[in-house]
Simulated assay, not measured.
Amino acid sequence: MIENTPSVRQLRLVVEAEDYEEALAFFRDALGLPEQAAFSGEGDARVVILDAGRATLEIANPAQKRLIDDVEVGRQVAPKIRVAFEVDDAPAATARLLEAGGEEVAPPTVTPWRSLNARLNAPAGLHITLFQELEPLEQRTTRDGFGTNPEDRPGDAGQSV
C-alpha cells in the first residue's frame, strides 16, 4: 500500500556546464535563481545550488510532447528533457535571458492551457521554457482537458476531463 506521506523532499536537477561562469550569469544573475549554497574542491571542482522555488516533475507521453512543441514553437524541437521555469513576466524574463546569451527558439506565445510560454536554448545545453500563468489554477482546471488524471478519480475512471 502506498502511504500518503511523500518521501521525496526535493527535486534537484544536476547539470554539467562546460562554461560554468556563463551558466551562473544566465541562471543566477539573469533569470534570478537565488544562490542557496556553493562548494569547491580539488582540481577547480565547483558547484552552485540555485533555488528554483517549488519543483514538480511533469511526465508527458510522446503525443503530448509533440503537442506542446507544436503549440509553443510550431515544430518539433525539444529533446526528451526540457526545463520549465514559472516567471511573473514571460516577455521581460525572455528579454533578460536573450541579453544574457540565451538563444530564442520561440517568442512568448499564449497556449491553450492559458499560459504565456517562451522557448530558449540556454547555457549548459539546456532547452528551457519560461511560462507565465494567465489564469489561476482553479479557473484553468475547469476547462476541457484539464484536471486530474481520470484514472485517479474515484467513480469516473477513464472519463476525460
Results as ranks from 00 to 15, higher is better:
L31I: 15
V110F: 05
R143W: 06
N4E: 11
I128Y: 00
S40W: 00
A90R: 05
P79L: 03
G147W: 03
P154C: 03
E72W: 05
L130R: 05
Q76D: 13
Q139L: 15
A95F: 09
R119Q: 10
D51A: 10
E151H: 04
D144E: 15
V48Q: 11
L33S: 12
K80H: 10
E21S: 14
G101Q: 06
E151S: 08
A25T: 11
E138C: 01
E42T: 12
K65P: 06
V105K: 02
G125P: 12
D156V: 13
V14E: 14
R96M: 01
P136H: 14
V77M: 09
L11D: 01
I81F: 05
Q132W: 03
G41C: 13
A84I: 04
V47S: 12
G43I: 04
R46I: 02
E72G: 02
R153Y: 01
L130W: 00
F26D: 01
N121R: 13
A23E: 01
T56D: 01
R140I: 03
A122Y: 03
A100P: 02
E135H: 12
V14S: 14
D89S: 09
P62G: 12
E18R: 14
F27H: 08
E42K: 06
A38Y: 02
E138F: 07
I49A: 02
A60E: 10
Q64V: 15
T56F: 09
T56I: 02
R28L: 09
V161L: 08
T148V: 07
A84G: 15
A45M: 07
N61Q: 05
G125Y: 01
F131A: 02
S40C: 09
G101E: 10
E72A: 14
T5P: 00
A118L: 09
L137I: 01
K80A: 15
A78H: 12
Q159T: 12
A92K: 09
E138R: 13
R75Q: 15
A106R: 00
V77N: 02
T148P: 07
P91Y: 00
A122M: 08
V15M: 07
A23K: 03
D152G: 12
A23H: 04
L24A: 08
D29Y: 14
P112Q: 13
D89Q: 08
R9S: 10
R119Y: 07
V71T: 15
P150C: 10
I68S: 04
G158Y: 09
A100C: 04
N149M: 08
N61T: 06
K65N: 05
K65A: 14
G101P: 06
G145H: 08
N61R: 06
L137D: 03
P107L: 00
R46Q: 15
P62S: 11
E99V: 05
I128M: 03
L116C: 07
E58G: 11
A93C: 05
L24W: 11
T129I: 05
R54W: 08
